[in-house]
Design a protein around this nucleic acid. Sequence first.
DNA 1: TGAAATGTTGGGGCG
DNA 2: ACGCCCCAACATTTC
Length: 482
Amino acid sequence: MSDNPVLVWFRRDLRLSDNPSLHSAIKRSIETGTEVIPVFIYSPEEEGAWTPGEASNWWLHHSLLSLATRIEEKGSKLIIRRGGAKQILFDLVKETGATSIFWNRLYESEIISRDTGIKDALTKAGIEAKSFNGALLKEPWTFKNQSGKPFQVFTPFWRALQKVLEIPETLPEPLDILHYNRTCSSLKVEELSLLPKIKWDRKFYETWKPGEVNAQIELDKFLSSFVDDYGSARDIPSVRGTSRMSPSLHFGEISPGQIFSSVNRLKINASSGVEHYLREIGWREFAHHLLVHFPHTPLEPLRPNFKNFPWANDPKSLLAWQQGKTGYPIIDAGMRELWATGWMHNRVRMIVSSFLVKDLLISWVDGAKWFWDTLVDASLASNTLGWQWSGGCGADAAPFFRIFNPITQGEKFDSNGEYVRKWIPELSNLPNKFIHKPWEAPDNILKSAGVTLGESYPLPIVDHSLARTRALRAFDKVKAAN
DNA sequence: TGAAATGTTGGGGCG
DNA sequence: ACGCCCCAACATTTC
């Protein structure tokens, strides 16, 4: 009476609740008594040029452990394998007699073509292959602007999305998962070697709690206490003012639909804080919209005239930026937070990226690659959008001449220097007046704060005022080519 | 989801 | 009292 098993192929949807592919499989299981086999395949080489970095892999490791445990609590077992996805899926079909494979869609071009190929091959082989939307409020091809083209400006995109969006009914997590009883070999999570060989990840453990259950707890905490002040607190990096949900969203420990419905469930009055926050979820949607419609943008500027931009080849400055040794405290604090925790506050991301692109004239692509390697929330869609925004070469981007002043940004958003002191302890005894510009401090103040510029903390690697003028001159070449 | 340069206004010191 | 200048404060423009 029972049908052949159905495989649920987990990818970046590492949750049991509101998971459409899992939910469909469970539904079938309840109706026909068929077994459900949850599978995770580790195949980083199939992600094209954008192989996940070590910080991202750290998160994946712990998220997989959490998912595996949750699946065991439901009476089943997560099968983990490593290698080419297509081959492994066909192997599993052969081993288990499965006749259906369900998964949730991803949006990177290499992965889209891989998955399309897999779907075709499975269908040709008589296997039912079904994919679902498990990561977005509205998928990029389901709506367009009035002239029938993809959106390139956020505000009309967001308006249109909200218009077509019905607040999603989230799907419940399964009560149990009917276990596949015969043996089916699986790697242990540890055997994927996702954790760093050198133990630089100590701070990650104090900072993050990966996994679906923790994601829900963190979201509830944010929505019930922090979100009211989100509008202003989100700009202060020393304050816990943002949701910090980006890694959980990236790995699908939580869905954007769950965030929307949590807002409803907690009956949060439509304060400006909530509006601002949901708008950020909108930016995540916008990023996916752009990535799907303009798949070349991870490496190429959306605005073609920026191909002529005279970027500097300056490995020394790039290294100083990466290591947080530029001599500008707000920049260095951000870069050190990134290195230590795999994350950087969004306001500071904007400041450091403006500095790389405009003060150092280093290509936004180099910045994107560094963030890709070091962020736990590295997402091709969001990373690309953010860097093209900063580079002035993307959709709805900051105009190139909008050049952040690292001193005034620091004084504005870290006025008491708390963020800088946390990440640059060697400056912690400087008075507020000089915390964002130590080179202006008189010798006696530097001395009593124990700071020796050029030794204990670097002198600025560029003069911002000169760098600003230089950037505007460089931009002239793009304008001329326009 | 900037910053700097330039322009305008108005109060107050001063001859 | 008046015009003149200075300059802070704010507004607008430009990059």
